[in-house]
Design a protein around this nucleic acid. Structure first.
Lengths: 343, 343
DNA sequence: ATGCTCGGTTGGAACGATCAAGGGGGCTCT
DNA sequence: AGAGCCCCCTTGATCGTTCCAACCGAGCAT
């Protein structure tokens, strides 16, 4: 219990104040807070009473200065693109905040310059404003991870180091191929044979990874993939055009998409042609965005275990920050399929 | 330019290191960083060179300790509810991060306990971990604002103090009634006369505010509202039921909704009945969520100026933190209507 | 009794920045 | 020439915490 009197202190109580009230020294109070085991039970109780009475809470700045750590985790916060369905950061960030809070850390957001993915990191690092980073958006060609590695900055990446075989930093990622394989198999089990892939451009490694799941599922069932794949930008418009083209040329009965955004494009096409998703043609998206959840008749989608990702990331961070020599290693989590009306 | 050598320093350079290299005292370096005007141009240049050469960046902890301020802004981060269309925090948070960064502040996220809206604030406040808070979710009955006021905590609220006439804290809000009025007028101008309202329960002040915009627009055109209003929970399901009921009983030609989530429910109903949104019946949502942007045929929606909100909030925060006596005052911003296929 | 360990406690120093006060050189003014 | 002043810079103290080494009394073996 904290005494919540009406008096508002001009200056918060310090360790010394508590020490005086409890009749012990500063160090003893510090120990009561950080290493309670070192104190005799009765002394500890007396100190805790005093802390309680004064409403004492250790001054973060002083502690940070002395211990050379801020207990803050930096996260570059880029906004979700408008006119797409991808807003997974929201779920991820929340889980990260929750998990790291339980581990005694807070999340510090800093803006990301789209032009320069490494901007901002340096400043925070050198001013010892954060203890570590969580790096997201580790798509191919993003120099973030490599840059952080050369700086010896403690960080955990959400995303595999696609372009760097020798990367030794810890990472956590979701097995996109496995997710798409789940989705494809799901459609096969519903009796579909001609299942099309609506994906991203070839340069997008993540997209190619997901595509591999489709190929794998199709081949393992002896189904042909010829003429059933398309690649384009991650926009609703592209998804619409791609699916229209596929319907004309290959008449698939099901679509597996690299994203919910593309899947929405497919739904557009179906609507234009008087086809009903889930009845005439099956559609599966990727990300289980809010769009997938509320659009009629419900879009079946691959859901990334973002909560688990955050947990794993924090686990790695704790490892990094407490046992510095321990480095490297990755964790690959498997997504699940959320089945809705569209399939 | 920062010298990015391959050597990684074990310990970052300090003010004293810079002072030695530049051949000046600590205080002079400090002034070079914080009050450049105080130095002679040539001295300033020499110091800046040294700073550059060493890659110096002030230690945040030390600065915070001495100045009794952290330059951090606390934001309670609650996740968007699943199965709704509302994910406006994403846009808002990004803008807040961007704006406050420009003002020299960073955003610190902390988890919110749904059971206790004031949890977390106290700890951060007393440990001087943050300078101020941004309080969101200031719906009626949320004790946050009042609690923060009694604690004399510096904060700016996103949302009006609905339940407290005497509130003196600064706030920024969006005029929901004006937004809905825009939406309703838009439908009237398109020739609609029987325009229904799909809203929230009466207890939701924000919902009632938005509803007032509908009433106002209807009355000013001499249109009847009788039997055209419904109130329910903010779920797709509720929106679906409400609109089905309204169609049966009052046969409206247009729907104005308190949220995109409810609007999606309306779209569900239309789909079930073979009606086409935008052709047979007009639908307008609220929030301009990603769902509104990508759902076929595009959902017309009221877009809150979240970027401006963040700017205003940061402006108020700066005022609070630099001229403590200046308090109070609110800003009400007007949203705009984004017209899409559904109307 | 002496020496020694051990749990518990103590005061001094340090972390790295800013604040407040002080000082020296050059200029003007008398 | 001396007083006064301003400008530019330096010095010592300080923020509140944790680290460090020393200390002290009690218990035990010698």
């Amino acid at each position: 219990m904290t005494r919540a009197g009406s008096w508002v202190p001009t200056t918060p109580p310090t360790l010394a104040d508590v020490a005086e009230v409890a009749g012990v020294s500063r160090q003893t109070v510090s120990n009561a807070v950080n290493n309670p085991d070192l104190l005799r039970p009765d002394t500890l109780a007396r100190v805790l009473d005093a802390i309680d009475e004064l409403g004492y809470s250790p001054n973060r700045a002083a502690r940070n200065l002395r211990t050379r750590s801020s207990h803050l985790i930096g996260l570059r916060f880029a906004p979700a693109q408008e006119h797409t369905a991808n807003a997974l950061m929201d779920r991820f960030v929340h889980s990260l905040v929750e998990t790291s809070s339980a581990a005694g850390y807070h999340v510090l957001l800093f803006p990301g310059d789209p032009e320069d993915p490494t901007a901002g990191y340096d400043q925070l690092l050198r001013s010892t404003a954060v203890d570590a980073f969580v790096a997201t958006d580790t798509y191919l060609g993003n120099p973030q991870a490599t840059w952080l590695e050369t700086r010896r900055a403690p960080f955990v990446a959400f995303g595999r180091p696609w372009d760097n075989e020798e990367a030794v930093h810890p990472w956590v990622d979701v097995d996109g191929a496995a997710g798409v394989e789940l989705a494809t198999t799901h459609l096969v089990e519903r009796g579909h044979q001609r299942i099309a892939w609506v994906g991203w451009r070839k340069e997008q490694v993540i997209g190619e990874d997901r595509r591999a799941g489709w190929t794998r599922a199709m081949r393992s069932r002896g189904l042909s993939t010829t003429g059933l794949a398309s690649r384009s930008d991650d926009t609703v418009h592209s998804g619409r055009e791609a699916s229209a083209h596929l319907l004309d040329e290959a008449s698939p009965t099901g679509f597996v998409c690299a994203s919910d955004t593309l899947a929405m494009g497919v739904l557009h096409t179906l609507g234009e042609r008087g086809l009903v998703a889930g009845r005439d043609v099956a559609v599966v998206g990727f990300d289980d965005s809010q769009v997938a959840q509320v659009v009629p008749p419900g879009l079946t989608s691959v859901r990334q275990p973002l909560e688990e990702v955050a947990v794993e990331i924090v686990r790695h961070l704790e490892g990094l920050l407490t046992h510095p020599p321990v480095r490297g290693g990755g964790v690959l989590l498997t997504p699940e399929l959320v089945v809705r009306g569209s399939s």
